[in-house]
Amino acid sequence: MPIESMHPIGVFDSGLGGLSVLRALRAELPNERFVYVADSGHAPYGERDDEYLIHRSGTISRWLQHHHQIKALVVACNTATAAAIHVLRAEHPALPIIGIEPALKPAVAKSKTGVIGVMATPSTLKSEKFQRLLASLQDQARFVLQPCPGLALAIEQFDAIKTGAACATFTRAMGTFGIQTGDIDTLVLGCTHYPFAEASLRSGTGHEVHYLEGGAPVARQTRRLLVKANTLLTIEPSNSGRIDFHSTGDSRTLALAAERWLGIADTVHDLEI
């Protein structure tokens, strides 16, 4: 087994939302080590332009390479993936880089009514990458797109009142959810933060609607690329499952989120990059 197999997998997001992807990665790859970067000091990404997102994504990726010798990189943010992943892959051609995108294709396969809701940040919905994906599927379903400014931030702040109010506003604006003809029966959560607001979202959509997120497909693709590169960790080392948490913002917030959402009580390191 090559020595690179012992190296960690880097994961980054604009803040806390990528923890939903990290949760899926840990379930799929329990032996692997991870380094998670929450770029909370430069959030929210959802209202940033592409130039800014490319700069931040590049800065974090280079730091993960230099300081942790990562063997793969997971961009656990829909907005950063849409804006920057092509630049990251060009800059690091030998590094497996896995991005995340709204699960439109699985939604088409899942929906029975042919009406699919998509909730995402304004930047994701406006991105060229998303628009290409949407155009490729336009003749297979009707998509109801809902930009959700402020929702990711409300979730990051653990503000149940703001989160609930935002979820109610956005789901109400989308139309009727259900399983009858013309209803939205499948909802794509196009931001990694949104799975942590599922309880609030269910109040607006009901429990018959299928929810789709991107964490599990990302985890499976990460496994495939590690196998291809012969760097999948097949043994259980003494530091199996270890996660190094870093935040460019309030480290206490990331620590609280990791404990609340992942059941992990661990130290979070302050990061200035």
Rank of each mutant, 00 (worst) to 15 (best):
C77E: 01
T171A: 07
R224W: 15
P96W: 04
T248F: 06
T181S: 14
S136R: 15
I54G: 06
K110E: 11
L187F: 11
H210F: 15
K110A: 13
Y211C: 06
G215Y: 05
P237A: 07
R48N: 12
V227F: 04
D13H: 09
A216N: 12
T113D: 01
A80K: 00
I60A: 07
Q140K: 14
V227T: 15
A173L: 15
P8W: 03
G150M: 08
Q221H: 14
R202A: 07
L88T: 00
T169C: 12
M119R: 08
A107I: 00
Q131D: 08
L212P: 02
Q146R: 11
I98A: 04
E198T: 13
L125Q: 09
I70D: 00
Q65T: 10
R33Y: 10
Y211F: 14
P147A: 10
R33M: 08
A27E: 13
I97N: 00
A135W: 09
K228C: 13
I273H: 06
R242P: 06
C77A: 03
G99A: 08
G206I: 12
L29D: 02
Q69G: 08
G182I: 02
A27R: 05
R224G: 14
P2D: 04
G15F: 07
L271G: 01
D39E: 11
I116E: 03
T171F: 01
I179M: 14
D139I: 11
I97Q: 04
R260V: 05
I179D: 12
H68V: 04
L233Y: 02
L201R: 07
G182W: 07
T222D: 10
Q221N: 13
I116A: 02
Y194L: 09
L145D: 02
R132N: 10
C191Q: 03
D270A: 13
E32S: 00
C167W: 05
G10F: 00
S14A: 05
V188C: 05
T59S: 10
S40N: 14
A265D: 12
A152F: 09
R224H: 14
G41R: 02
H66C: 14
A255L: 05
L271D: 02
K129Q: 13
G41P: 00
I179A: 14
I179W: 11
A216L: 13
A83C: 06
L104W: 02
K110S: 12
V35F: 03
H207F: 15
L53F: 03
T267R: 12
S238L: 14
M1I: 10
P122I: 01
A197P: 05
V218C: 10
A219K: 04
V74S: 06
Q180T: 07
V218N: 11
K126R: 15
I3M: 11
C77D: 02
A109M: 12
L145S: 10
A24R: 02
A165N: 14
F130M: 04
V21F: 06
L19A: 05
Q180Y: 12
Q131W: 07
V11K: 03
F34N: 01
K129P: 11
F170N: 05
T163C: 06
C167Q: 01
R224L: 15
A80H: 01
L271F: 07
K162M: 12
F158P: 06
